[in-house]
């Protein structure tokens, strides 16, 4: 069973497939993050570390 399963991992096509899956997912993330429409939202999120201080009222 284990040997059966392991057999596939020396299959270079499968590794190439996994690699491209990774690459596509990653490129997807990049495009999603860089959407123009999301710019202002992300800018707001980036303020998180500073927000907590502003609220301290000291």
């Amino acid at each position: 069973m284990k040997q059966e399963a392991l057999k596939y991992f020396t299959n270079i096509n499968l590794i190439a497939f996994a690699f491209f899956l990774f690459l596509i997912t990653f490129i997807g993330i990049v495009f999603w993050t860089l959407r123009r429409s999301a710019k202002s939202q992300y800018e707001e999120l980036g303020r998180a570390p500073l927000r907590e201080e502003a609220n301290r009222g000291k």
Binding site: F26, I29, V30, L34, G46, P49, L50
Partner: peptide
């Protein structure tokens, strides 16, 4: 660094990409 200089990170979106790129 944002705390020390009291400014948000230069590009939050770049930091997200930085993260996923390193993970991958």
């Amino acid at each position: 660094i944002p705390k020390a200089v009291n400014r948000p990170v230069y590009s939050y979106r770049l930091s997200i990409i930085h993260f996923w790129a390193l993970i991958f």
